[in-house]
Design a protein around this nucleic acid. Structure first.
Lengths: 122, 122
DNA sequence: CTAGAATATTCAACTATTTGAATATTTAGT
DNA sequence: ACTAAATATTCAAATAGTTGAATATTCTAG
């Protein structure tokens, strides 16, 4: 019953805030941390939680760990991300997060995503 | 952040099994209990949990409490019930539950739903 | 080898959820 | 009033999830 993993990830506000950012592309832990203004270990743990539950994948690039929503997405996740975008696009908290993210240089994550695209680390 | 309530309800197998049955119409606690073959207090508590989180409504009819998914459904719930139907329609456990339910006389719940439709008890 | 940046993990306290057994409550019928 | 059916609640034990502070790890640059 894989759906339960998806729902377990979606039933927490911090994790939804993280997914809200990852919709737009891969990010390192530090980017998420800065955008959400939350302690490092909290972000790291929530990302690990979602990876453990199959919602995210990660790759290592030098000092960074880049997290992203996989290409081949679970149908359920896909649908819910769509719904959430509609429901949460105008949510103040989510907006603020995206605002802060837009001011951060996240290019490392993109470079990593390109460079490592054949040698994914699970 | 109301979505979280929805996801909290969906991230448990027993609750998904219950929703799988309630998709087809209103049911009393005893019907669910018999179809799922689980202890009464467990069913009662899970139904209460979903009601508390706004996913279900209930009405009292004589000795019975009839639970149902409200007409005016949350968009998110609606979408997920749709997804789940596709994903779980052929799931063995869910099939068995529906099979057992089909052999139970659940007419009380329907009568109650009709009779009480103006005087809902929240 | 050393220092520092980025992450991950450990630890301990805390909160929430889940469970079955037992008990309480509500209601209808007698 | 008494009984039985249907449901809800209480209780205590167990498990799961969350958190921040501190520490460990990994890797790069010098």
């Amino acid at each position: 019953m894989n759906c339960i993993s998806v729902y377990k990830c979606l039933c927490d506000e911090t994790r939804l805030r993280i997914l809200n950012l990852l919709r737009e592309g891969p990010l390192c832990v530090c980017h998420v941390q800065e955008a959400l203004q939350l302690p490092q270990s909290k972000i790291s743990k929530q990302l690990a939680f979602m990876k453990r539950n199959g919602l995210l994948q990660s790759r290592r690039y030098n000092n960074w760990t880049v997290y992203e929503i996989p290409e081949e997405r679970n149908t359920l996740l896909e649908e819910n991300l769509r719904c959430l975008q509609d429901l949460l696009f105008s949510d103040a908290q989510f907006k603020r997060d995206r605002g802060r993210l837009s001011k951060i240089d996240t290019s490392v994550a993109c470079v990593a995503a390109e460079q490592c695209c054949e040698s994914k680390i699970d």
